[in-house]
Write a protein that binds this DNA or RNA. Structure first.
Lengths: 223, 223
DNA sequence: AATACTTGGTGACAATGTCACTGAACCATG
DNA sequence: CATGGTTCAGTGACATTGTCACCAAGTATT
Protein backbone atom coordinates (compact mmCIF):
# COMPACT_ATOMS: atom_id res chain seq x y z
CA UNK A 1 0.00 0.00 0.00
CA UNK A 2 1.11 3.58 -0.46
CA UNK A 3 2.39 5.80 2.28
CA UNK A 4 -0.38 5.95 4.85
CA UNK A 5 1.18 8.74 6.85
CA UNK A 6 0.68 11.07 3.90
CA UNK A 7 -2.87 9.98 3.15
CA UNK A 8 -4.10 13.54 2.99
CA UNK A 9 -2.25 14.05 -0.28
CA UNK A 10 -4.29 11.31 -1.87
CA UNK A 11 -7.51 13.25 -1.47
CA UNK A 12 -7.91 15.61 -4.42
CA UNK A 13 -9.99 17.99 -2.37
CA UNK A 14 -7.62 18.01 0.57
CA UNK A 15 -4.29 18.51 -1.13
CA UNK A 16 -4.93 22.24 -1.20
CA UNK A 17 -4.98 22.49 2.56
CA UNK A 18 -2.30 24.54 4.22
CA UNK A 19 0.45 22.68 5.99
CA UNK A 20 -0.72 23.10 9.60
CA UNK A 21 -4.15 21.79 8.69
CA UNK A 22 -2.67 18.79 6.95
CA UNK A 23 -0.53 18.08 9.94
CA UNK A 24 -3.51 18.34 12.25
CA UNK A 25 -5.40 15.85 10.10
CA UNK A 26 -2.47 13.48 9.97
CA UNK A 27 -1.49 13.56 13.60
CA UNK A 28 -4.98 13.49 15.06
CA UNK A 29 -6.31 10.69 12.91
CA UNK A 30 -5.76 6.98 13.13
CA UNK A 31 -5.62 4.49 10.29
CA UNK A 32 -8.16 1.74 10.69
CA UNK A 33 -8.79 -1.42 8.73
CA UNK A 34 -12.14 -3.06 8.26
CA UNK A 35 -12.69 -6.61 7.11
CA UNK A 36 -14.75 -7.38 4.06
CA UNK A 37 -18.51 -7.64 4.58
CA UNK A 38 -18.35 -5.84 7.91
CA UNK A 39 -20.98 -3.27 8.76
CA UNK A 40 -19.10 0.02 9.01
CA UNK A 41 -22.11 1.91 10.28
CA UNK A 42 -25.77 1.20 10.59
CA UNK A 43 -28.83 1.37 12.80
CA UNK A 44 -27.64 1.45 16.36
CA UNK A 45 -24.06 1.73 15.26
CA UNK A 46 -23.10 5.38 14.88
CA UNK A 47 -19.38 5.71 14.44
CA UNK A 48 -17.45 7.99 16.73
CA UNK A 49 -15.27 9.21 13.92
CA UNK A 50 -15.50 10.71 10.48
CA UNK A 51 -13.98 8.24 8.05
CA UNK A 52 -11.85 9.12 5.02
CA UNK A 53 -11.51 6.09 2.78
CA UNK A 54 -7.98 5.27 1.69
CA UNK A 55 -8.67 1.88 0.10
CA UNK A 56 -11.71 -0.19 -0.70
CA UNK A 57 -15.39 0.46 -1.09
CA UNK A 58 -18.26 0.93 1.30
CA UNK A 59 -21.73 0.17 -0.01
CA UNK A 60 -24.54 2.20 1.52
CA UNK A 61 -27.93 0.56 1.30
CA UNK A 62 -31.28 0.81 2.87
CA UNK A 63 -33.78 -1.69 4.16
CA UNK A 64 -37.33 -0.56 3.63
CA UNK A 65 -40.19 -1.05 6.02
CA UNK A 66 -41.60 -3.34 3.36
CA UNK A 67 -38.54 -5.55 3.60
CA UNK A 68 -37.19 -4.42 0.25
CA UNK A 69 -33.62 -3.30 -0.11
CA UNK A 70 -31.92 -0.81 -2.37
CA UNK A 71 -28.34 0.31 -2.80
CA UNK A 72 -28.11 4.08 -2.36
CA UNK A 73 -24.49 4.75 -3.31
CA UNK A 74 -20.93 3.67 -2.76
CA UNK A 75 -18.10 5.43 -1.01
CA UNK A 76 -14.85 4.87 -2.85
CA UNK A 77 -11.25 5.54 -1.92
CA UNK A 78 -10.64 9.28 -1.85
CA UNK A 79 -14.10 10.02 -0.55
CA UNK A 80 -15.47 10.61 2.88
CA UNK A 81 -18.33 9.22 4.91
CA UNK A 82 -18.84 12.62 6.43
CA UNK A 83 -22.40 13.05 5.36
CA UNK A 84 -23.58 9.61 6.21
CA UNK A 85 -21.93 9.93 9.55
CA UNK A 86 -23.49 13.31 10.06
CA UNK A 87 -26.85 11.87 9.21
CA UNK A 88 -26.45 9.10 11.70
CA UNK A 89 -25.49 11.56 14.38
CA UNK A 90 -28.48 13.73 13.64
CA UNK A 91 -31.09 11.03 13.12
CA UNK A 92 -30.11 7.72 14.59
CA UNK A 93 -33.43 6.10 13.85
CA UNK A 94 -32.96 5.68 10.16
CA UNK A 95 -32.28 2.55 8.34
CA UNK A 96 -29.31 2.99 6.03
CA UNK A 97 -26.24 0.91 6.64
CA UNK A 98 -22.72 0.96 5.30
CA UNK A 99 -21.05 -2.32 4.46
CA UNK A 100 -17.43 -2.82 3.49
CA UNK A 101 -17.48 -4.49 0.08
CA UNK A 102 -13.77 -5.09 0.20
CA UNK A 103 -11.10 -4.82 2.80
CA UNK A 104 -11.30 -1.14 3.69
CA UNK A 105 -8.58 1.09 5.00
CA UNK A 106 -9.63 4.47 6.29
CA UNK A 107 -8.41 7.43 8.29
CA UNK A 108 -10.61 8.02 11.32
CA UNK A 109 -10.91 11.64 12.36
CA UNK A 110 -12.53 12.35 15.74
CA UNK A 111 -15.56 14.58 15.64
CA UNK A 112 -13.94 17.33 17.63
CA UNK A 113 -10.99 17.51 15.28
CA UNK A 114 -13.37 17.51 12.34
CA UNK A 115 -15.25 20.45 13.78
CA UNK A 116 -12.04 22.36 14.41
CA UNK A 117 -10.99 21.77 10.82
CA UNK A 118 -14.28 23.02 9.45
CA UNK A 119 -13.95 26.11 11.61
CA UNK A 120 -10.33 26.79 10.82
CA UNK A 121 -9.81 25.95 7.17
CA UNK A 122 -11.66 27.31 4.19
CA UNK A 123 -10.36 24.61 1.83
CA UNK A 124 -11.55 21.97 4.26
CA UNK A 125 -14.97 23.62 4.40
CA UNK A 126 -15.08 23.60 0.63
CA UNK A 127 -14.18 19.93 0.61
CA UNK A 128 -16.96 19.08 3.05
CA UNK A 129 -19.60 21.14 1.32
CA UNK A 130 -18.60 19.79 -2.06
CA UNK A 131 -19.02 16.27 -0.70
CA UNK A 132 -22.47 17.09 0.61
CA UNK A 133 -23.45 18.76 -2.63
CA UNK A 134 -22.24 15.91 -4.76
CA UNK A 135 -24.16 13.46 -2.66
CA UNK A 136 -27.38 15.41 -2.80
CA UNK A 137 -27.23 15.93 -6.55
CA UNK A 138 -26.47 12.23 -6.98
CA UNK A 139 -29.51 11.40 -4.90
CA UNK A 140 -31.59 13.69 -7.10
CA UNK A 141 -30.41 11.78 -10.13
CA UNK A 142 -31.14 8.50 -8.42
CA UNK A 143 -34.70 9.53 -7.61
CA UNK A 144 -35.15 10.46 -11.23
CA UNK A 145 -33.84 7.10 -12.36
CA UNK A 146 -35.89 5.05 -9.94
CA UNK A 147 -39.03 6.97 -10.78
CA UNK A 148 -38.73 7.26 -14.55
CA UNK A 149 -36.08 5.08 -16.07
CA UNK A 150 -36.93 1.76 -17.64
CA UNK A 151 -35.55 -1.24 -15.86
CA UNK A 152 -33.67 -2.60 -18.88
CA UNK A 153 -31.82 0.70 -19.25
CA UNK A 154 -30.95 0.77 -15.57
CA UNK A 155 -29.81 -2.84 -15.55
CA UNK A 156 -27.59 -2.34 -18.59
CA UNK A 157 -26.08 0.72 -16.96
CA UNK A 158 -25.50 -1.10 -13.70
CA UNK A 159 -23.85 -4.05 -15.42
CA UNK A 160 -21.42 -1.80 -17.26
CA UNK A 161 -20.64 0.20 -14.12
CA UNK A 162 -20.14 -2.88 -11.96
CA UNK A 163 -17.92 -4.50 -14.54
CA UNK A 164 -15.43 -1.67 -14.41
CA UNK A 165 -12.57 -2.54 -16.70
CA UNK A 166 -13.34 -6.24 -16.59
CA UNK A 167 -15.80 -8.20 -18.69
CA UNK A 168 -17.40 -10.25 -15.98
CA UNK A 169 -19.57 -9.26 -13.07
CA UNK A 170 -19.57 -11.66 -10.18
CA UNK A 171 -22.95 -11.25 -8.61
CA UNK A 172 -26.28 -12.94 -8.32
CA UNK A 173 -29.60 -11.92 -9.76
CA UNK A 174 -30.72 -11.26 -6.22
CA UNK A 175 -27.89 -8.80 -5.60
CA UNK A 176 -28.51 -7.05 -8.90
CA UNK A 177 -32.16 -6.62 -7.94
CA UNK A 178 -31.08 -4.90 -4.71
CA UNK A 179 -28.80 -2.61 -6.70
CA UNK A 180 -31.81 -1.42 -8.66
CA UNK A 181 -34.47 -1.75 -6.01
CA UNK A 182 -36.49 -4.21 -8.06
CA UNK A 183 -37.37 -7.90 -7.85
CA UNK A 184 -35.10 -10.80 -8.66
CA UNK A 185 -37.54 -12.18 -11.20
CA UNK A 186 -37.40 -8.92 -13.11
CA UNK A 187 -33.62 -9.07 -13.26
CA UNK A 188 -33.73 -12.69 -14.38
CA UNK A 189 -36.12 -11.86 -17.19
CA UNK A 190 -34.08 -8.91 -18.39
CA UNK A 191 -30.84 -10.87 -18.28
CA UNK A 192 -32.48 -13.58 -20.34
CA UNK A 193 -33.42 -10.97 -22.90
CA UNK A 194 -29.86 -9.59 -22.95
CA UNK A 195 -28.56 -13.11 -23.39
CA UNK A 196 -31.02 -13.76 -26.21
CA UNK A 197 -29.57 -10.73 -27.95
CA UNK A 198 -26.07 -12.06 -27.42
CA UNK A 199 -25.00 -9.17 -25.22
CA UNK A 200 -24.18 -11.30 -22.20
CA UNK A 201 -23.61 -14.86 -21.11
CA UNK A 202 -24.72 -16.17 -17.78
CA UNK A 203 -23.35 -18.60 -15.30
CA UNK A 204 -24.34 -19.28 -11.75
CA UNK A 205 -23.22 -16.25 -9.78
CA UNK A 206 -21.72 -14.31 -12.68
CA UNK A 207 -22.55 -12.44 -15.84
CA UNK A 208 -20.12 -12.10 -18.73
CA UNK A 209 -20.47 -9.01 -20.87
CA UNK A 210 -20.00 -10.06 -24.48
CA UNK A 211 -21.00 -6.77 -26.05
CA UNK A 212 -20.42 -3.94 -23.64
CA UNK A 213 -20.93 -1.39 -26.37
CA UNK A 214 -24.52 -2.43 -26.98
CA UNK A 215 -25.20 -2.42 -23.26
CA UNK A 216 -23.71 1.04 -22.99
CA UNK A 217 -25.84 2.23 -25.89
CA UNK A 218 -28.96 1.02 -24.16
CA UNK A 219 -27.85 2.63 -20.91
CA UNK A 220 -27.19 5.94 -22.65
CA UNK A 221 -30.50 5.79 -24.42
CA UNK A 222 -31.92 7.85 -21.60
CA UNK A 223 -30.72 11.02 -23.31
CA UNK B 1 -45.95 40.39 9.50
CA UNK B 2 -43.78 39.87 12.55
CA UNK B 3 -40.62 41.80 13.26
CA UNK B 4 -38.35 41.15 10.31
CA UNK B 5 -35.31 42.76 11.89
CA UNK B 6 -35.27 39.98 14.47
CA UNK B 7 -35.82 37.17 12.02
CA UNK B 8 -32.99 35.14 13.44
CA UNK B 9 -35.04 34.45 16.55
CA UNK B 10 -37.65 32.75 14.46
CA UNK B 11 -35.27 29.98 13.40
CA UNK B 12 -35.25 27.28 16.05
CA UNK B 13 -31.74 26.26 15.13
CA UNK B 14 -30.38 29.78 15.13
CA UNK B 15 -31.79 31.14 18.38
CA UNK B 16 -28.89 29.58 20.22
CA UNK B 17 -26.34 31.70 18.43
CA UNK B 18 -24.32 34.13 20.47
CA UNK B 19 -25.20 37.79 20.20
CA UNK B 20 -22.38 38.93 17.88
CA UNK B 21 -23.21 36.17 15.43
CA UNK B 22 -26.87 37.09 15.45
CA UNK B 23 -25.99 40.69 14.85
CA UNK B 24 -23.73 39.74 11.99
CA UNK B 25 -26.53 37.74 10.42
CA UNK B 26 -29.01 40.53 10.91
CA UNK B 27 -26.90 43.42 9.73
CA UNK B 28 -25.31 41.68 6.76
CA UNK B 29 -28.47 40.18 5.35
CA UNK B 30 -31.24 41.78 3.39
CA UNK B 31 -34.91 40.89 3.42
CA UNK B 32 -36.20 40.00 -0.01
CA UNK B 33 -39.67 39.23 -1.28
CA UNK B 34 -40.49 36.89 -4.11
CA UNK B 35 -43.78 36.80 -5.97
CA UNK B 36 -45.83 33.63 -6.16
CA UNK B 37 -44.88 31.20 -8.94
CA UNK B 38 -41.49 32.80 -9.45
CA UNK B 39 -38.47 30.62 -10.00
CA UNK B 40 -36.22 31.24 -7.01
CA UNK B 41 -33.39 29.21 -8.41
CA UNK B 42 -32.94 26.80 -11.25
CA UNK B 43 -30.79 25.80 -14.20
CA UNK B 44 -28.77 28.78 -15.22
CA UNK B 45 -29.99 30.75 -12.27
CA UNK B 46 -27.70 30.22 -9.31
CA UNK B 47 -28.54 32.65 -6.56
CA UNK B 48 -25.82 34.85 -5.16
CA UNK B 49 -27.09 34.47 -1.64
CA UNK B 50 -28.04 31.83 0.86
CA UNK B 51 -31.73 32.21 1.56
CA UNK B 52 -33.39 31.78 4.94
CA UNK B 53 -37.14 31.52 4.49
CA UNK B 54 -39.19 33.75 6.75
CA UNK B 55 -42.57 33.26 5.11
CA UNK B 56 -44.01 31.07 2.41
CA UNK B 57 -42.98 27.88 0.69
CA UNK B 58 -40.53 27.02 -2.04
CA UNK B 59 -41.19 23.85 -3.99
CA UNK B 60 -38.12 22.08 -5.32
CA UNK B 61 -38.76 19.87 -8.29
CA UNK B 62 -36.89 18.21 -11.04
CA UNK B 63 -37.45 17.80 -14.74
CA UNK B 64 -36.19 14.50 -16.00
CA UNK B 65 -34.46 13.90 -19.30
CA UNK B 66 -37.55 11.91 -20.19
CA UNK B 67 -39.71 14.97 -19.70
CA UNK B 68 -41.24 13.69 -16.50
CA UNK B 69 -41.38 15.84 -13.41
CA UNK B 70 -41.25 15.05 -9.73
CA UNK B 71 -41.42 17.19 -6.60
CA UNK B 72 -38.36 16.55 -4.46
CA UNK B 73 -39.22 18.51 -1.33
CA UNK B 74 -40.43 21.81 -0.01
CA UNK B 75 -38.62 24.49 1.91
CA UNK B 76 -40.88 26.01 4.55
CA UNK B 77 -40.55 29.08 6.71
CA UNK B 78 -37.84 28.55 9.29
CA UNK B 79 -35.73 26.49 6.91
CA UNK B 80 -32.85 27.33 4.68
CA UNK B 81 -32.04 26.78 1.04
CA UNK B 82 -28.42 26.37 1.99
CA UNK B 83 -28.02 22.91 0.58
CA UNK B 84 -29.83 23.50 -2.63
CA UNK B 85 -27.86 26.64 -3.11
CA UNK B 86 -24.65 24.85 -2.33
CA UNK B 87 -25.55 22.19 -4.85
CA UNK B 88 -26.17 24.73 -7.53
CA UNK B 89 -22.88 26.40 -6.84
CA UNK B 90 -21.05 23.11 -7.04
CA UNK B 91 -22.84 21.56 -10.01
CA UNK B 92 -24.62 24.08 -12.13
CA UNK B 93 -25.61 21.58 -14.78
CA UNK B 94 -28.32 19.87 -12.90
CA UNK B 95 -31.95 20.21 -13.40
CA UNK B 96 -33.68 20.95 -10.09
CA UNK B 97 -35.51 24.20 -9.73
CA UNK B 98 -37.07 26.04 -6.83
CA UNK B 99 -40.42 27.72 -7.30
CA UNK B 100 -42.17 30.00 -4.85
CA UNK B 101 -45.53 28.39 -4.15
CA UNK B 102 -46.70 31.44 -2.24
CA UNK B 103 -45.44 34.92 -1.74
CA UNK B 104 -42.08 34.27 -0.13
CA UNK B 105 -40.16 36.47 2.23
CA UNK B 106 -36.58 35.50 2.93
CA UNK B 107 -33.38 36.79 4.44
CA UNK B 108 -30.58 36.75 1.89
CA UNK B 109 -27.13 36.14 3.32
CA UNK B 110 -24.15 36.73 1.02
CA UNK B 111 -21.91 33.75 0.50
CA UNK B 112 -18.93 35.39 2.13
CA UNK B 113 -20.89 36.16 5.26
CA UNK B 114 -22.22 32.63 5.27
CA UNK B 115 -18.72 31.23 5.12
CA UNK B 116 -17.57 33.49 7.94
CA UNK B 117 -20.46 32.31 10.05
CA UNK B 118 -19.68 28.67 9.45
CA UNK B 119 -16.08 29.33 10.39
CA UNK B 120 -16.81 31.38 13.46
CA UNK B 121 -19.83 29.86 15.12
CA UNK B 122 -20.28 26.31 16.31
CA UNK B 123 -24.05 26.63 16.71
CA UNK B 124 -24.27 27.92 13.15
CA UNK B 125 -22.22 24.98 11.94
CA UNK B 126 -24.55 22.65 13.77
CA UNK B 127 -27.53 24.34 12.15
CA UNK B 128 -26.07 23.94 8.69
CA UNK B 129 -25.03 20.33 9.15
CA UNK B 130 -28.36 19.46 10.68
CA UNK B 131 -30.08 20.94 7.63
CA UNK B 132 -27.91 18.88 5.30
CA UNK B 133 -28.46 15.75 7.33
CA UNK B 134 -32.19 16.19 7.44
CA UNK B 135 -32.33 16.70 3.73
CA UNK B 136 -30.26 13.63 2.96
CA UNK B 137 -32.24 11.38 5.27
CA UNK B 138 -35.45 12.73 3.76
CA UNK B 139 -34.14 11.92 0.31
CA UNK B 140 -33.34 8.40 1.50
CA UNK B 141 -36.94 8.04 2.63
CA UNK B 142 -38.18 9.42 -0.64
CA UNK B 143 -36.14 6.94 -2.65
CA UNK B 144 -37.61 4.19 -0.55
CA UNK B 145 -41.13 5.43 -1.16
CA UNK B 146 -40.72 5.92 -4.88
CA UNK B 147 -39.14 2.51 -5.27
CA UNK B 148 -41.33 0.41 -3.02
CA UNK B 149 -44.48 2.11 -1.88
CA UNK B 150 -47.76 1.47 -3.59
CA UNK B 151 -49.23 4.41 -5.42
CA UNK B 152 -52.51 4.42 -3.50
CA UNK B 153 -50.64 4.66 -0.21
CA UNK B 154 -48.47 7.48 -1.50
CA UNK B 155 -51.42 9.36 -2.93
CA UNK B 156 -53.41 9.11 0.29
CA UNK B 157 -50.40 10.34 2.22
CA UNK B 158 -49.86 13.22 -0.16
CA UNK B 159 -53.49 14.29 0.01
CA UNK B 160 -53.46 14.38 3.79
CA UNK B 161 -50.16 16.26 3.87
CA UNK B 162 -51.22 18.80 1.25
CA UNK B 163 -54.54 19.39 2.99
CA UNK B 164 -52.83 20.56 6.15
CA UNK B 165 -55.52 21.57 8.59
CA UNK B 166 -58.06 22.11 5.86
CA UNK B 167 -60.35 19.58 4.23
CA UNK B 168 -59.87 20.57 0.63
CA UNK B 169 -56.85 20.39 -1.61
CA UNK B 170 -56.88 22.79 -4.52
CA UNK B 171 -54.89 21.05 -7.17
CA UNK B 172 -55.29 19.20 -10.43
CA UNK B 173 -54.73 15.55 -11.15
CA UNK B 174 -51.78 16.62 -13.25
CA UNK B 175 -50.14 18.43 -10.35
CA UNK B 176 -50.74 15.52 -8.02
CA UNK B 177 -49.06 13.22 -10.51
CA UNK B 178 -45.99 15.45 -10.47
CA UNK B 179 -45.98 15.33 -6.68
CA UNK B 180 -45.66 11.58 -6.84
CA UNK B 181 -43.70 11.25 -10.06
CA UNK B 182 -46.40 9.20 -11.70
CA UNK B 183 -48.87 9.68 -14.57
CA UNK B 184 -52.04 11.72 -14.47
CA UNK B 185 -54.16 8.76 -15.49
CA UNK B 186 -52.91 6.82 -12.49
CA UNK B 187 -53.91 9.65 -10.16
CA UNK B 188 -57.31 9.90 -11.81
CA UNK B 189 -57.93 6.20 -11.37
CA UNK B 190 -56.88 6.20 -7.73
CA UNK B 191 -58.96 9.26 -6.94
CA UNK B 192 -61.94 7.56 -8.53
CA UNK B 193 -61.37 4.60 -6.27
CA UNK B 194 -61.11 6.87 -3.20
CA UNK B 195 -64.30 8.58 -4.27
CA UNK B 196 -66.03 5.24 -4.74
CA UNK B 197 -65.14 4.44 -1.13
CA UNK B 198 -66.55 7.77 -0.03
CA UNK B 199 -63.22 9.06 1.24
CA UNK B 200 -63.12 12.08 -1.05
CA UNK B 201 -65.24 14.15 -3.36
CA UNK B 202 -63.92 15.67 -6.51
CA UNK B 203 -64.50 18.88 -8.35
CA UNK B 204 -62.61 20.38 -11.21
CA UNK B 205 -59.34 21.55 -9.73
CA UNK B 206 -59.97 20.43 -6.16
CA UNK B 207 -60.34 17.40 -3.95
CA UNK B 208 -62.40 17.41 -0.76
CA UNK B 209 -61.33 15.01 1.93
CA UNK B 210 -64.47 13.50 3.44
CA UNK B 211 -62.77 10.88 5.57
CA UNK B 212 -59.27 11.96 6.38
CA UNK B 213 -58.95 9.24 8.97
CA UNK B 214 -59.35 6.48 6.41
CA UNK B 215 -56.88 8.14 4.11
CA UNK B 216 -54.43 8.45 6.95
CA UNK B 217 -54.90 4.79 7.80
CA UNK B 218 -54.07 3.82 4.26
CA UNK B 219 -51.06 6.11 4.27
CA UNK B 220 -49.80 4.63 7.53
CA UNK B 221 -50.37 1.13 6.29
CA UNK B 222 -46.76 1.14 5.18
CA UNK B 223 -45.64 0.13 8.66
C1' DA C 1 -70.34 33.05 -30.29
C1' DA C 2 -66.26 30.83 -32.03
C1' DT C 3 -62.06 29.15 -30.73
C1' DA C 4 -58.40 27.33 -28.18
C1' DC C 5 -56.80 25.57 -23.84
C1' DT C 6 -57.23 23.00 -19.50
C1' DT C 7 -58.96 19.36 -16.97
C1' DG C 8 -60.41 14.91 -16.45
C1' DG C 9 -62.34 10.16 -18.20
C1' DT C 10 -61.67 5.86 -20.81
C1' DG C 11 -60.00 1.53 -22.85
C1' DA C 12 -56.34 -1.11 -24.77
C1' DC C 13 -52.08 -2.41 -24.10
C1' DA C 14 -47.07 -2.66 -22.25
C1' DA C 15 -43.93 -2.86 -18.47
C1' DT C 16 -43.04 -4.10 -13.99
C1' DG C 17 -43.99 -6.28 -9.47
C1' DT C 18 -45.82 -10.26 -6.78
C1' DC C 19 -46.59 -14.92 -5.67
C1' DA C 20 -46.13 -19.77 -5.59
C1' DC C 21 -43.69 -23.19 -7.12
C1' DT C 22 -39.90 -25.94 -9.51
C1' DG C 23 -35.43 -27.81 -10.32
C1' DA C 24 -30.46 -27.33 -10.74
C1' DA C 25 -26.03 -26.23 -8.71
C1' DC C 26 -23.30 -25.90 -4.80
C1' DC C 27 -21.82 -27.00 -0.07
C1' DA C 28 -21.06 -29.23 4.40
C1' DT C 29 -21.10 -33.21 6.76
C1' DG C 30 -20.75 -37.99 7.86
C1' DC D 1 -19.16 -40.54 -2.23
C1' DA D 2 -23.71 -40.05 -0.62
C1' DT D 3 -26.95 -37.19 1.51
C1' DG D 4 -29.43 -33.43 2.78
C1' DG D 5 -29.68 -28.54 3.13
C1' DT D 6 -28.99 -24.16 1.02
C1' DT D 7 -28.44 -20.92 -2.65
C1' DC D 8 -29.47 -19.66 -7.17
C1' DA D 9 -32.19 -19.27 -11.10
C1' DG D 10 -36.49 -20.29 -14.19
C1' DT D 11 -41.50 -20.20 -14.89
C1' DG D 12 -46.41 -19.01 -15.34
C1' DA D 13 -50.35 -16.64 -13.57
C1' DC D 14 -51.81 -12.61 -12.06
C1' DA D 15 -51.90 -7.61 -10.05
C1' DT D 16 -50.28 -3.07 -10.33
C1' DT D 17 -48.59 0.72 -12.68
C1' DG D 18 -47.25 3.27 -16.89
C1' DT D 19 -48.21 4.60 -21.77
C1' DC D 20 -50.88 5.95 -25.58
C1' DA D 21 -54.59 7.66 -28.19
C1' DC D 22 -58.59 9.65 -27.93
C1' DC D 23 -62.88 11.98 -26.15
C1' DA D 24 -65.85 15.28 -23.56
C1' DA D 25 -66.76 18.89 -20.53
C1' DG D 26 -65.41 23.08 -18.46
C1' DT D 27 -62.85 27.56 -18.89
C1' DA D 28 -60.57 31.39 -20.97
C1' DT D 29 -59.61 34.33 -25.05
C1' DT D 30 -60.89 36.99 -28.69
Amino acid sequence: MTDDANWVERFPGLSRLDLPTKQLLTTRSTIVSVAKNTMVFGPGNSPENMLFLLDGTVRVQQVSETGHQIVLYRIEAGQSCVLTTACLLAYDDYSAEGIAETVVKAAAVPRGVFDDLVAGSKPFRDFVFAAFSKRITDLFLMIDEVAFQRIDVRLADKLVKLSGGSDTVSTTHQKLSVELGTAREVVSRQLQEFQRRGWIEQARGSVTLKDKRQLQTLADHSA
